[in-house]
Design a protein around this nucleic acid. Structure first.
Lengths: 219, 219
DNA sequence: CGTTAGTCGTTAAAGATTTCACATACTTCA
DNA sequence: TGAAGTATGTGAAATCTTTAACGACTAACG
């Protein structure tokens, strides 16, 4: 498995899950074929960009026809490893953590939150969104071989927890705290900073007025 | 006010709130000066990129010295319009919406959620995180001149609500639903798609292994 | 079967962003 | 005051990403 070694550009890689989801939608709706133009309208990505993205994986479509939804979907399912579920841990069962636990990722997705940790005694032992909550003290013991963690703790605790996650063998962290955590270079961290996203939107509104001609999409 | 018309690159603009927050931290800690290298360690952005970013606003630092924290902070405060608070509405008081309402944006930030809307009768009239919850039916009536909305409704409702927000005169939407909403070209939408972020992280972990030499940061 | 309309895959160009590397100028300290 | 050390601001190069444009091929239909 894997002569797919002509490294896909990062920008493309980030769009793959988006494509996958919409292909799923189309498939559910019973659509058999789709053009880059149609897909473009749905996901708000330029159609040339979509064709270019797909082309990194070879010739997936047919000229004059478009793409076969079923085929494309099954191709991306393999590419995105949708067949095997990735097990995820969530640290910090506050408001945001709870939101994640109640969000049914597994539905369109290869990821499943299997365990949650919190420091608040009152939450330990309970279930939130069907996921058991363990005490943070038991992190190392109960993490097992889970390799991805969602970090939704107070930012003051972020670096400390991250260090423990790294020691426990985590490979990737989705960090929702405002803290920019430091990790060894073999661990990948993606930051999603909600306050910053909001501020950035406000900044763009003030300083990058959209006129009638422009049509902008986000990050 | 605004001869700052040499358009700042978007990539730079997105980092400004991040810089601002860390400068605030430094200032609180009583630091008087900071170098691009130090800032780089803190925010995980290459120091040359930081210097380049700052340079778009003119010469803010001093050679051989670095940047004066106080000065830089007050400069960015003006640039990011931190003096005037931007009023924000939140639509959809579910788990994620509640998380936002309990998140104290105003603290380091020029934004304040002033009103929330929901369709669930049980929530109407209550306060969440100090913000009153109104019925979604009263959206147009009670939105007033608020120009930014956070959308945390079920994705099936996203487009419909977005249409109403646009009609009510909104300028920007921070969309947390998986739906890619369509809006007129004079309305700005930023999408934050939590499931996709998680999937993308998983994809990067499998296909872009970090070795000892590389050090990656996300956007 | 031939013609028209449609759509891909790709080359090439343009645009955006990051990074290198260094001249320049400030700071510090003896 | 002068020498050594530091860190900026930026020109130039490198890298990454998007977009335009079009040749080649397919589908569909009369």
């Amino acid at each position: 498995m894997d002569i797919e070694q002509t490294k896909i550009p990062q920008a493309t890689a980030k769009r793959l899950p988006l494509y996958y989801r919409f292909l799923n939608n189309l498939h559910t709706q019973g659509k058999l074929r789709v053009s880059s133009k149609e897909l473009s309208d749905a996901v708000k990505v330029d159609s040339a960009t979509i064709r270019r993205d797909f082309s990194y994986f070879g010739a997936l479509g047919k000229k004059g026809y478009g793409y076969n939804v079923e085929y494309l979907l099954s191709f991306f399912r393999k590419t995105l490893d949708q067949d095997e579920t990735t097990r995820v841990a969530l640290i910090g069962v506050g408001n945001l953590g709870t939101a994640f636990l109640n969000y049914n990722f597994t539905k369109n997705n290869n990821t499943k939150i299997e365990i949650a940790f919190d420091a608040n005694e009152e939450r330990i032992g309970s279930e939130v969104g069907g996921v058991g909550v363990e005490h943070i003290d038991d992190l190392e013991e109960k993490l097992g071989d889970i390799s991805v963690a969602i970090l939704t703790v107070p930012s003051s605790a972020a670096q400390g927890i991250a260090d423990r996650l790294v020691k426990a063998g985590i490979s990737g962290i989705l960090n929702f705290t405002p803290a920019r955590i430091s990790v060894p270079s073999n661990v990948r961290v993606h930051h999603i900073d909600l306050a910053i996203e909001l501020q950035a939107l406000v900044y763009f509104l003030k300083h990058y007025p959209l006129n009638e001609e422009e049509m902008e999409e986000d990050q």
